[in-house]
């Protein structure tokens, strides 16, 4: 997996999926349309400001609320490289893995990060480095099963591989 490096945008605790992509925009599932409204109800100017490869840093329970996959899709389509949070809500965590949006739980890194810092992420080793502060933190590693899904490029490709091998995962 590639090394990610970018400017960070900092958000607080309990950022819900309605804030990430408000329901008023859910009458479409076209990624580039969703990207225009990414994080709109948390920061209305985010979609304009965010640059390719930037990283979202948030507090606990990021992505709580609805099961809408439009939330990680909007973030991915806004070209955000990765989300680092103290913790993720369950369905968001699952969806991000399933669609291939890199996410990491790393409370220490979140606590010391400030808007505008530059952060580098090594997904394979589960390391987060704050380039500005020159500090490196260990993130929570993915279980093997989830690494296999991410390695396959998301759940759909994982299932495809499984069906092609004719051996269903048991």
């Amino acid at each position: 997996m590639r090394q990610l490096k970018g400017k960070i945008w900092v958000f607080g605790d309990d950022i819900d999926t309605d804030a990430i992509i408000p329901a008023r925009h859910l009458n479409t599932s076209v990624p580039r349309e969703l990207a225009l409204h990414c994080m709109e109800d948390a920061d209305p100017t985010f979609a304009e400001k965010v640059g390719e490869g930037d990283i979202i840093v948030a507090g606990s329970n990021f992505g709580c609320g609805s099961s809408r996959e439009h939330a990680p899709i909007a973030i991915k389509a806004a070209k955000v490289a990765c989300v680092i949070a103290e913790s993720f809500a369950r369905i968001f965590y699952r969806n991000a893995i399933n669609i291939g949006l890199p996410i990491l739980e790393c409370p220490e890194a979140v606590r010391e990060a400030k808007e505008g810092h530059e952060v580098a992420v090594d997904l394979a080793r589960g390391l987060v480095s704050n380039v500005t502060l020159q500090r490196t933190y260990n993130a929570v590693a993915f279980p093997e099963f989830m690494q296999a899904i991410i390695g396959a490029g998301g759940l759909i490709d994982f299932v495809k591989e499984g069906l092609e091998e004719g051996s269903r995962h048991g």
Partner: peptide, 27 residues
């Protein structure tokens, strides 16, 4: 996400995303 409602009947019911739904419709 409110699929958890059916737990009221003594079922295991949980919300997932669209990709999970797609995979389950196939497998």
């Amino acid at each position: 996400s409110h699929t958890c409602t059916y737990g009221a009947l003594g079922a295991f019911a949980t919300g997932v995303g669209s990709t999970d739904m797609a995979a389950a419709m196939a497998t």
